[in-house]
């Protein structure tokens, strides 16, 4: 069995070798799944109105990705290549069901907020992309690192977008007022001075524009990433 051979070989390589570290750090910026590889924006943008939702979404994605990559990597020599995609889909779908059921049972308030978007993690292209590109041809440990790196690279963009939108759009962070009270008739803080929330930020299209701006900033700082038109 090739898997057992690899397990024996594994300790020879330091646990966090340079190569392994890069697996985590690369996806955070230079090879970010959202801003560079353009994967996984499908299910992500719609839930970036509030930081809380984005946070729970990120946690779910990290869970599904790490375990998914691990399972695929363990099974990589057993999966028949013809039904590869379906097997991968079944693995993701099962993990997502586990996440969804657990959310419904233990944090029902969060589950209500995420609604159908938990299900859409299944078709999150990052997950399938990593299975296909990495886990199918690598050992379990690097696969976990790769999953962690990519999932966090995805998560921080998600939370950042949510932060921008929640602060500018509703003047809150995690549901708590930061600019003062804006109820009509009892304004306080900035609102008393005439500040008004930018309701445009809450609308769905603004998520795209915020991501666009993040890409702009990132590529201005790192000229290598600039695309030819």
């Amino acid at each position: 069995m090739s898997t057992t051979e690899e397990k024996l070989k594994a300790p020879k390589e330091p646990l966090f070798s340079k190569k392994n570290k890069r697996l985590i750090t690369d996806p955070l910026s230079d090879n970010n799944p959202i801003t560079i590889q353009v994967l996984g924006i499908c299910s992500a943008l719609a839930i970036t109105v509030q930081v809380e939702q984005a946070f729970w979404m990120s946690i779910s994605v990290i869970f599904v990705m790490v375990f998914g990559n691990l399972i695929v990597s363990l099974l990589r020599n057993l999966i028949p290549s013809r039904v590869r995609i379906i097997v991968q889909l079944v693995i993701v779908a099962s993990l997502v069901i586990i996440v969804n059921e657990s959310l419904q049972a233990f944090v029902p308030d969060v589950s209500e907020k995420l609604s159908v978007f938990v299900g859409l993690i299944i078709t999150n292209c990052i997950i399938m992309g990593r299975f296909e590109a990495f886990a199918m041809s690598n050992k379990p440990f690097p696969s976990i690192l790769d999953a962690v790196g990519n999932a966090i690279g995805y998560a921080w963009i998600l939370v950042l977008v949510a932060l921008v939108r929640e602060v500018l759009g509703s003047g809150k962070i995690w549901g708590a007022n930061i600019f003062g009270n804006n109820l009509p008739g009892e304004e306080s803080g900035l609102y008393a001075l005439g500040y008004v929330n930018n309701n445009l930020m809450i609308l769905p299209p603004m998520a795209l524009i915020v991501v666009g701006v993040i890409i702009w900033v990132q590529r201005s700082m790192n000229k290598e990433l600039v695309e030819e038109n």
Partner: peptide, 8 residues
Amino acid sequence: HKGETPGL
């Protein structure tokens, strides 16, 4: 509500 625009 099920999915009204947050903040609005």
